[in-house]
Amino acid sequence: MSLLTGSRPSRLDRRSTLWQADWLLVLAVGALSAVGAMLIWSATFQRDTLTGGDQYEFLLRHLMNFGIGLVLAIVAAITPHRWVRILAPFVYVGSMLGLILVLVPGVGAVVNGSRSWIHMPGLSMQPSEFAKLAVIVGMALLIAEKGEANHRDEARTIDVAQALALAAIPVALVVLQPDLGTVMVLGALVFGIIAVSGVSKRWLIGLVLVAVTTAVLAIELHVLKDYQLARFAAFADPSQDPRGIGYNVNQARIAIGNGGVFGQGLFHGSQTQNAFVPEQHTDFVFTVAGEELGLIGAGGIIALFAIVLWRGLRIAVNARDAFGRLVATGIVCWFGFQAFENIGMTLGIMPVTGLPLPFVSYGGSSMFSGLLAVGLLQNIHLRSNSF
């Protein structure tokens, strides 16, 4: 019996578990984080207003975040499977409490127009990052438990409806912040989970129609803030306000265009070192790669993400139960859509939403939640190999 089935493993079992890990996934995520450390360092080491004069400030913070996240990933990977399912409801409830606290005046902090942060002494946390993982495990557990109770491989209509209701709570709380980028990610992963649950394709068509209708109503009823509507306007025509809302996108495209095939060299990008691109160590970190590492370096980052998604899909296909398959699928949809959105907004093919590039952008909450998700992928993979 292996660790993932709840029994106490022998030393041989532990050693076998280590070797059975998906090391290609581990190496791809580690490479993304290492490249991110260099890009963050390049984007911040000359900006005294950010670093307070310490050129290694953000580099060391990023590495520390990765170290803490790595511990969380290992814990998630070796936790017995039954305990993962037992803890899933607590993860969901805890994330919902975080999303509620963000909306409390005096507790939640407004950053870039969105009340999505909780600032504490020496620590800032963004609960919406953990809500992505909470929605995945919550929906997966509900659908899997219902299917097992009814001895069915495919989800029933009532099961899917309940899972969607479960997801609707965090989506509504994130809308109130408002954080449009996270809402888009949640929509993508919810769609992915429903798609592999075995439900009728009519559900998928219905979800698309609901999403389109909701977007139209949000615009017509002025649910979206003025700056969010302005971002969409800038996406449609960046030239209409090049010094205002379109500034970020224009500068990002200039930076990436400057890189050419081989780039200007790490720490030598003219746009990057002269601080022309705002939020370059977080949301627009990909522009550093485009300018300083060129098409080859930026393409390498995309290739690493392709490996992560490929390994995640392999884990989903080989999962031993519905819970594992649904969790792995949700994580792949999360990483895939968020990476596409982040890179797309720097290229001008997607609207600016403030989403970080997983494992590459600076940010503790994003790193912790992302590595926890990788740990869950490993947990599912190890369970599949233990039979």
Rank of each mutant, 00 (worst) to 15 (best):
A252S: 15
V107N: 04
V183C: 10
V185D: 07
R314T: 13
F267V: 08
V352T: 14
V317S: 02
V174T: 11
T282R: 02
P9W: 13
H222L: 05
Q271Y: 01
A168R: 08
R325G: 06
G348F: 11
Y247K: 07
W23I: 01
V210A: 13
I301T: 11
Q55H: 07
L50H: 07
H62E: 11
G330F: 11
I331R: 01
V135F: 02
L141W: 14
D54C: 01
P89C: 12
M350Y: 09
S270T: 15
Y56N: 09
L39S: 07
Y56Q: 08
A233H: 06
Q20C: 11
V171H: 14
A21M: 15
S128V: 13
A163I: 04
G265Q: 07
R202A: 09
E129H: 09
G299Y: 09
V35D: 09
L32W: 02
A306L: 10
A319L: 12
I380G: 03
G269E: 07
Q280L: 10
V137R: 01
L221V: 13
A230Y: 05
L103Y: 09
I205P: 00
S128I: 10
R314W: 10
A37W: 04
G265E: 05
V216G: 03
V223L: 10
F335H: 02
L217C: 10
P238T: 14
F66Y: 12
W310P: 09
A34Y: 04
T51M: 03
R8T: 15
A230C: 03
G354A: 12
G69L: 04
K132L: 08
A316W: 13
R383I: 10
T346C: 12
W334R: 01
R156P: 00
R314E: 12
P105V: 03
L304N: 01
E57T: 13
L141N: 05
L87I: 13
M125T: 04
L70T: 09
P351M: 05
W23K: 00
V223M: 11
V249T: 15
Q251I: 09
I307P: 04
I380C: 06
S366P: 05
N379V: 06
A233K: 09
A328E: 08
A165L: 15
P278D: 12
A131R: 05
Q273V: 08
R156I: 01
M120T: 08
Q273A: 06
E154Q: 14
V93W: 12
P278E: 11
A73N: 03
R231F: 05
T44G: 02
L189A: 07
L204W: 01
Q55I: 00
L27H: 00
P242S: 12
F323H: 01
D159G: 14
S366Y: 06
R8N: 13
M367P: 02
V160Q: 03
L3K: 13
L204E: 00
G336D: 04
S386C: 06
M345N: 07
A215D: 10
R85Y: 08
V75C: 12
F45C: 05
A188C: 11
V223A: 10
V208I: 15
M120R: 05
G336L: 02
E291H: 06
G138C: 09
V196Y: 07
L186A: 04
F45K: 03
A255D: 01
D321W: 05
G297V: 15
L24C: 11
L32F: 07
D54W: 01
A73K: 04
R152V: 10
L204R: 00
L229F: 09
P238E: 11
N379L: 06
V110A: 13
F66M: 12
